[in-house]
């Protein structure tokens, strides 16, 4: 047992390939047998991943899901930012420049609309929960943008650490909901073409959420959504501690 654990720990990434492979296979079997393909196999696999991350987090009290379990640390490498970005860029292979250009302006509009709408929602809820200082309201609003914009903004304007933690939590809730919810609402919101995928990426913004949500809906839409989503966090970090903060300060 000790020897096995040693081998597994020493070969983290390889173990990750094995474990994720089995998870995906199992998910496709469940998708076909239990749902007759109605729920996409990759959606089930992503959901299984999130559930596993939840229980792993309870067990280890860590922040990186199953990656905090020693023998599964390789999952953290495979699912980390580096591999995620590498995978996302590779999906652009075969994308036509004309499609990107056609939706370019709408894509930019959607990024600004997405950042502002999410921020306003976060800020209003913060006020309803009794927060009255501009720093806390802005930080929670920024958390609704993404879980990166929240702490970046909060740190820049000097919000308290519990408010920053709250903003991260709000951003993580958003990211996970986008992963799970996208395949369910895809049909209703017309998410079946490159243009709406770019608008979707710009409005949601959370790279992980968009990456997971579109993968579970139709992998061919991933490059379009990811393209706009990757600008979202940057724009959010730009607007959060500056214009949006000044506007909030003017109100309170």
């Amino acid at each position: 047992m000790e020897t096995l654990s040693e081998v597994l720990r020493a070969n983290g990434l390889i173990v990750a390939f094995t474990v994720v492979g089995i998870t995906v296979w199992l998910s496709y079997v469940v998708s076909n047998r239990l749902t007759h393909g109605r729920i996409h196999g990759s959606a089930i696999a992503i959901l299984l991943g999130l559930v596993a991350a939840y229980f792993a987090g309870l067990e280890t009290e860590g922040r990186r899901g199953v990656a905090d379990i020693g023998v599964l640390a390789g999952i953290g490498i495979m699912g980390g930012g580096m591999m995620r970005d590498f995978g996302i860029v590779s999906t652009a292979f075969g994308v036509h420049l004309s499609e990107l250009r056609r939706a370019g302006v709408v894509g930019i509009i959607s990024i600004f609309a997405g950042v502002i709408v999410s921020f306003v929602i976060g800020a209003v809820v913060a006020v309803l929960f009794g927060y009255s200082d501009a720093e806390s309201i802005t930080t929670i609003g920024a958390g609704a943008v993404t879980y990166i914009v929240g702490p970046v903004t909060g740190t820049a304007i000097g919000a308290s650490s519990d408010v920053i933690a709250l903003s991260v939590a709000a951003g993580v809730v958003k990211s996970i909901l986008v992963m799970i919810g996208t395949p369910m609402v895809a049909r209703q919101i017309g998410l079946n073409n490159p243009q709406s995928a770019m608008v979707f990426g710009g409005l949601m913004g959370t790279t992980s959420g968009v990456a997971g949500g579109l993968a579970a809906t139709d992998p061919r839409l991933v490059p379009y959504g990811a393209m706009t989503a990757t600008f979202y966090t940057g724009i959010g970090c730009l607007l959060g501690p500056s214009i949006l903060y000044f506007i909030v300060r003017a109100f309170v």
């Binding site: 992503i46 991943g49 953290g76 495979m78 992998p219």
Partner: peptide, 16 residues
Amino acid sequence: YIPIVVAMAASQNVVA
């Protein structure tokens, strides 16, 4: 890409 996203999902801070 999809397997990577599955691994990404499994390393999220869902508890938070």
